[in-house]
Measured scan of single mutants.
Amino acid sequence: NITNLCPFDEVFNATRFASVYAWNRKRISNCVADYSVLYNLAPFFTFKCYGVSPTKLNDLCFTNVYADSFVIRGDEVRQIAPGQTGNIADYNYKLPDDFTGCVIAWNSNKLDSKVSGNYNYLYRLFRKSNLKPFERDISTEIYQAGNKPCNGVAGFNCYFPLRSYSFRPTYGVGHQPYRVVVLSFELLHAPATVCGPKKST
């Protein structure tokens, strides 16, 4: 009989979030998941669920729940959905087409922007091929755009693959930082360890 609440607040209220290319994953298990708490945590810009209804979450049980978190800019949030393409979905964080879970995003301009520009958040701009779903690539190998090998040196047709967002508070919403948490629900042929409040007794 599990009584402890799932530590969603640790994920959502973390002081620092990860850069999207090096997104963070927390496995959540053996706890009571009260998803209604999430609705009250922040004024969400996005709370979209796929393959599951957000209002039914509190009635369900899962084997595992994974919470992935990272920062992107406002106009990239739409890429965090099944079947999307674009720089983020292709080279940084890719959801599977049959994704079961929820994408939660909110504006973090007050936390993640600086007047002089916050350069701490990076994204991958160049990659030889698209990522597979939930693949994480943290390599910093020089990207070869031409025929000549780069031998690890940046220059003509040889690019450092990561680029930094420079978040400034005066930017338009599309270029402001957004914190994203992706909850993916895993149903294996194994005992369910993460249940809503109704199912945990």
Results as ranks from 00 to 15, higher is better:
1 N>P: 13
1 N>C: 07
2 I>S: 13
3 T>P: 11
7 P>G: 10
9 D>I: 11
13 N>H: 11
13 N>D: 07
16 R>I: 14
19 S>G: 05
29 S>A: 12
32 V>K: 12
33 A>T: 09
34 D>Y: 06
35 Y>K: 09
36 S>R: 13
37 V>I: 13
39 Y>C: 09
41 L>N: 14
41 L>C: 10
42 A>K: 15
42 A>G: 15
46 T>V: 13
46 T>D: 10
50 Y>D: 00
50 Y>A: 02
53 S>P: 11
56 K>L: 10
60 L>H: 11
63 T>F: 08
63 T>S: 14
67 A>K: 05
71 V>P: 00
73 R>G: 05
74 G>E: 02
74 G>F: 03
75 D>R: 07
75 D>C: 06
79 Q>L: 05
81 A>F: 04
81 A>W: 09
82 P>G: 04
84 Q>K: 12
86 G>A: 03
86 G>W: 02
86 G>R: 03
87 N>G: 11
88 I>K: 03
90 D>C: 09
98 D>R: 09
101 G>K: 02
103 V>D: 00
106 W>N: 01
107 N>T: 03
110 K>L: 08
112 D>G: 02
113 S>D: 00
114 K>S: 11
114 K>W: 09
117 G>F: 03
120 N>E: 13
121 Y>R: 02
124 R>L: 00
125 L>S: 12
126 F>P: 03
127 R>M: 03
129 S>Q: 14
130 N>R: 15
131 L>Y: 03
132 K>C: 08
132 K>Q: 13
133 P>T: 05
139 S>M: 07
139 S>I: 05
141 E>F: 08
142 I>P: 06
142 I>C: 04
142 I>D: 00
145 A>G: 09
146 G>M: 01
147 N>W: 07
150 C>L: 00
150 C>W: 02
150 C>Y: 01
151 N>T: 09
151 N>G: 14
152 G>H: 09
154 A>V: 11
154 A>P: 13
154 A>W: 06
155 G>M: 06
155 G>D: 06
155 G>P: 03
157 N>Q: 02
159 Y>G: 00
161 P>R: 04
162 L>I: 14
163 R>H: 15
165 Y>G: 00
166 S>M: 05
167 F>L: 01
176 Q>S: 02
176 Q>E: 00
176 Q>N: 03
178 Y>G: 01
180 V>P: 00
182 V>C: 04
183 L>Y: 04
183 L>Q: 01
187 L>D: 13
188 L>P: 12
189 H>D: 15
190 A>V: 12
190 A>S: 14
190 A>P: 13
192 A>V: 13
195 C>P: 08
201 T>R: 14
201 T>Q: 14
